[in-house]
Write a protein that binds this DNA or RNA. Structure first.
Lengths: 138, 138
DNA sequence: ATATATTGTTTGATAGTCAAACTATGTGTG
DNA sequence: CACACATAGTTTGACTATCAAACAATATAT
């Protein structure tokens, strides 16, 4: 079989399984999908404006308005006026929001751990290196 | 840095990039997201019942009803009565539906080709082998 | 000053989803 | 056989996710 076909098949299946896993992890928690994604970004990259958050999430600012409204109502995040530009807000996770982020992060870590558990050290190293290379190039 | 952390970071970023890519590919075509996913399954695994399709897609049969309604309206698929069970339908791609599948498949292949283009033969081999292993174990 | 650009919100529309009620059909048991 | 139970798919009602376009407030440039 052509190596590209083989790579493709495994990539597609892997992506599918990752998607299901992510979906089920989110549904275990109390957050809705959009909120969970926003919290992941805010936890990973830190507080940022509506515009930057929208760009990171790949959605319009209108969509982000709704998402952040719900996060605020749920007590996960707050809008804070930006010092330098009075049109802009900085979205910051509350302690509750940060806890949710850490919890999600732990799930990711245990997923990575599970994967690593049935790979050799050499395979882990190669896999990580290739992923890093792909992330840089794509 | 801990190898697990490093693996996790790269996995998360990779998944994020794959998601964006998939999203943009679907939006280039005429199909909506749910329809595109259904066509992928039907093209890959062949005709199947509403129930099996729902299970493959990870949604309820109610959701699949809507999705297949729209595919039928668009001329991408047809419901055919199952021979053995008159409650059941077999969902089959039309020629138009199969063309859409092949088109999507070509996009996936060129994505795999792009990835392969900046990897060594050895890296491709290792990456594919690890993905296969993960897909089997997860 | 005045026009233009930018940040974020609102509005109106559509898609995606689920749970629960429902219809039609199939299966098993006394 | 008849009745209960199970299963395949649809419908309904509700909510979330999303976009594009119109809008308000503020910033920037000429």
């Amino acid at each position: 079989m052509d190596p590209i076909d083989e790579l493709n098949e495994n990539l597609v299946e892997f992506f599918d399984r990752m998607s299901s896993w992510e979906q089920s992890v989110i549904q275990q928690g109390k957050l809705n999908v959009a909120g969970a994604h926003a919290i992941e970004k805010l936890g990973h990259f830190g507080s940022m404006s509506m515009k930057d958050l929208s760009k990171d999430l790949g959605v319009t600012t209108g969509t982000t308005t709704i998402t952040v409204d719900r996060l605020e109502k749920g007590g996960y995040a707050v809008r804070e006026r930006a010092d330098n530009d009075r049109r802009s807000y900085i979205i910051r996770l509350t302690e509750k929001g940060n806890d949710a982020y850490l919890d999600h992060h732990r799930h990711h870590l245990s997923f990575a751990k599970e994967i690593a558990s049935f790979l050799t050290d050499e395979e882990i190293e190669c896999f990580t290196a290739v992923l890093e290379k792909i992330n840089k190039e794509i």
